[in-house]
Design a protein around this nucleic acid. Structure first.
Lengths: 172, 172
DNA sequence: TATGTATGAATGAATG
DNA sequence: CATTCATTCATACATA
């Protein structure tokens, strides 16, 4: 399945728009990932890329993205698995982006200590859309505007309770 | 007016928590960014926000973040070339030049090895972005055939890998 | 050919 | 400002 760049038989390999890791590359990547390196960082990325280059064309960006995706994916899976015992009715909709309606990040606390107060505003989409048409969202209060860094704005057009003026120590 | 809440994928009508810059907004932002203003002052942010607000919902936070991200991405990799150039004999058996396809999904910059510092992907990211949003906003069912690029830009290296991917080449 | 799934890539937002 | 996360989009690939 994975071997788009196969030169042995595939003479006419239609260059993909996106990089397709070869089995070898994948193996190495997984191996490194399994080592718990998690975020290889720049230097490591280079090394890995260099290594993978021996097995096929690859860029540091690819490696970087791979790890990023891998990590995000891993977490997703994890929280999903743990969600089983959870009392939530959220049935394993994990692999169904189609069915995905919201992001059960609350379950994510397992691995993530939830350092940030992610107050998800679960507002009805329909409402939002309606508001758009109504033009209600056209020009909200725009908040004070000095809390760029602290801007916890959850959604555009939604009035976040944290809209309070939160001045940050941004070097002006 | 383009509905930022609706995307080509539009599998779900769930409103996006994420601000989606409209074409106009993007254009203005890029323009300002191009001026070299870099990180506009809070005052400037307000002004920009005000301007962009006329083209769609937007917050100062959005503007702020946008510039931050833009800046971070602007500085594309510049050392990826001389650092890891282990691959010299890449089996780049690209398709024949005669090969022609309706959809120029020709080789991606990633697929293209031989990273040269001078030859770094200096594609017009602006264009790419525009095309992107066009494709996104375009509905597969409503192919306009006019200016819709449907993500199938005929630009080589439309997916400039180095445009994204945080620079892991950090000096430290 | 059309649909579904898996996954790489793009981007806004968060954090340090 | 630098780095990382989370979400979404687009596409390769498998399947019917």
């Amino acid at each position: 399945y994975c071997d788009p760049l196969m030169t042995s038989a595939g003479h006419k390999i239609t260059a993909r728009q996106r990089w397709t890791p070869t089995p070898l590359q994948l193996q190495i990547l997984e191996r490194i990932f399994d080592q718990g390196t998690g975020t290889p960082s720049k230097q490591k990325i280079k090394e890995i890329t260099s290594e993978l280059s021996q097995h096929g064309q690859i860029s540091e960006t690819n490696v970087y993205n791979w790890f990023q995706n891998r990590r995000a994916r891993s977490k997703r899976k994890q929280l999903v698995s743990s969600s089983n015992n959870a009392e939530s009715e959220v049935e394993t909709e994990v692999e169904s982006p189609n069915e995905k309606k919201t992001k059960p990040e609350n379950l994510l606390s397992q691995q993530n200590p939830a350092p940030r107060a992610e107050d998800l505003c679960f507002q009805n989409t329909e409402i939002t859309s309606e508001l758009h048409f109504l033009g209600v969202l056209s020009n909200p209060n725009s908040y004070n505007g000095d809390d760029h860094l602290s801007g916890k704005m959850g959604m555009p057009g939604s009035y976040n309770i944290y809209d309070e003026a939160e001045d940050y120590s941004m070097a002006g």
